[in-house]
Design a protein around this nucleic acid. Structure first.
Length: 429
RNA sequence: GGUGAGAUACUCAAGUGGCCAACGAGGGCAGACUGUAAAUCUGCUGCGCAAGCUUCGAAGGUUCGAAUCCUUCUCUCACCA
């Protein structure tokens, strides 16, 4: 199956420039997607463009991942209603390094094993040497302001509904991204830029620049932005973004995010986020419809994506953790765990240290929860107790409960819990 | 630079001297029900066990009493130039 077909049946394709599909069918080509270094880790929203590049590579084309060291300094106004804060250079460099490292986990950058190895570029490398005068004469001259103003990303910020206006900096952004495309077209023979549908305007500025400045033809392809059925933002939880970095979002939480997808979303996600073939997916969907409560789809997505992102071992631990946390395990089960297993399971669960003598003297339930920044105040603990939502070692407790040494797991830990999903560890020192 | 409007809890938003720890909505959290879901229902959502304490952009002031009145300051927005 060819690249465009692949994206199409997976429901990822949003729009293409005319003749893009024909061109890709006939030619092994080079295409790129840009990644914003707004943080030192990518989050699962970036997974879609990454996966597109992976498909692109699988189809025999040459993928280029561009890290926006320069464009990150300017700020993409697309989809933003407010002016963005600029990142300082130090942060940016840290972010670029982090993002680069993560991309390497997904794409094959190895020349020796792959004929069409992926390349990683940073637009700062070619942008840094361009003076303002050069830029204005060589780039700006080719694109009219009228053209730039017609872009949605700009229009939205200029019309009367906008409350903040738009700085010249952000207005210029599309020229930067356009110039990237032009540069890659010239230097890497890159003919295609891909991205989310919100990138259409920026991408076409690039093809326009290539047409005018190099009399060349370049192509654009955009993919659908991921939405959730309930209208909330994809990739966000109450705790913030779901990151690809295991230190920011533990593999367990990462797995849980996918597992908690709604049925409707799961049918979309399995196509988008896994590389399973059409038959397998259709079968899984059918299976899921038979018995939705088993959640085969969610489990499969969780497995595929977690393994791809964090590796097999991390996935297994996530499963183990899930079973213990959500299965029918009791305090007795917990106490049979050795320290290492216990730590693996609760990797990423916030914890606090506590003096052994405190436990030996008997720790009352209210201070146990409030004094270690698990819950915010004594009042909150008391409220929670009233709601019957407090557990110690997976067993519901009342306000007269006192934690003693007999409650210790592996002679070291006490598992505190508020509600079903919120855990906290006390570690005896 | 001119003119006008405004700043209240996570967000939106009432409140214009005592009945205000502050209406309401959303969000969040929890409980029940479930599939670790959706929908629904219920409770909670400044600190404190409580008495009480600290909150309404900031600082002062008037008053027995201020989110509410006065002064100054800071910031935001809109329109005009």
């Amino acid at each position: 199956m060819n690249f465009v077909e692949e994206l199409r049946w997976r429901g990822m394709l949003h729009d293409m420039m005319p003749e893009t599909e024909e061109y890709l069918l006939k030619n092994k080509t080079t295409g790129y997607i840009g990644f914003d270094p707004t943080a030192d880790s990518l989050h699962i929203g970036s997974l879609v463009p990454i996966i597109i590049l992976m498909h692109f590579q699988k189809a025999g084309h040459n993928p280029v991942a561009l890290v926006g060291g320069a464009t990150g300094m300017v700020g993409d106004p697309s989809g933003k209603s407010d002016e963005r804060n600029l990142l300082d250079e130090e942060t940016l460099n840290k972010n670029i390094a982090g993002v680069k490292g993560q991309l390497a986990r997904f794409l094959d950058f190895d020349n020796s094993t792959s004929e069409n190895a992926a390349q990683l570029v940073n637009n700062y490398d070619w942008m840094k040497g361009i003076s303002l005068i050069e830029f204005v004469r060589d780039v700006g001259k080719h694109i009219t302001v009228n053209y730039m103003m017609a872009k949605d990303s700009v229009k939205k910020r200029i019309d009367s509904e906008s409350k903040t206006g738009m700085s010249f900096t952000e207005f210029t952004y599309q020229l930067f991204q356009g110039y990237d495309f032009y540069h890659l077209y010239k230097e890497n023979n890159c003919k295609l830029q891909m991205g989310g549908s919100d990138q259409w305007g920026n991408i076409t500025t690039g093809t326009e620049l290539i047409r005018r400045k190099a009399q060349g033809k370049a192509y654009a392809l955009t993919c659908k932005l991921i939405t959730k059925a309930d209208g909330t933002k994809f990739g966000k939880t109450a705790g913030g973004n779901v990151w690809l970095d295991a230190n920011r979002t533990s593999p367990y939480k990462f797995y849980q995010y996918w597992l908690n997808s709604s049925d409707e979303d799961a049918e979309k996600y399995i196509k988008i986020f896994t590389f399973l073939d059409k038959e397998t997916i259709e079968q899984l969907i059918a299976e899921h419809k038979e018995a939705p409560h088993v959640r085969v789809l969610q489990k499969k997505i969780g497995e595929e994506v977690t393994v791809m992102t964090h590796g097999k071992e991390a996935y297994n631990n996530a499963i183990k953790a899930s079973n213990i946390l959500f299965g029918k395990s009791t305090a007795d089960d917990l106490k049979t765990l050795d320290e290492q297993t216990f730590l693996d399971v609760f990797d990423g669960v916030p914890q606090a240290e506590i003096e052994r003598s405190v436990i030996e003297n008997g720790l009352e339930i209210v201070p146990a929860f409030a004094d270690n920044s698990f819950l915010n105040s004594n009042g909150e603990v008391r409220r929670a107790l009233k709601e019957n939502s407090i557990s110690v070692n997976k067993e519901k407790v009342k306000d007269d409960c006192v934690i003693t040494t007999s409650d210790l797991i592996a002679d070291k830990f006490v598992l505190l819990q508020r509600g079903k999903k919120s855990y906290f560890l006390l570690k005896v020192i």
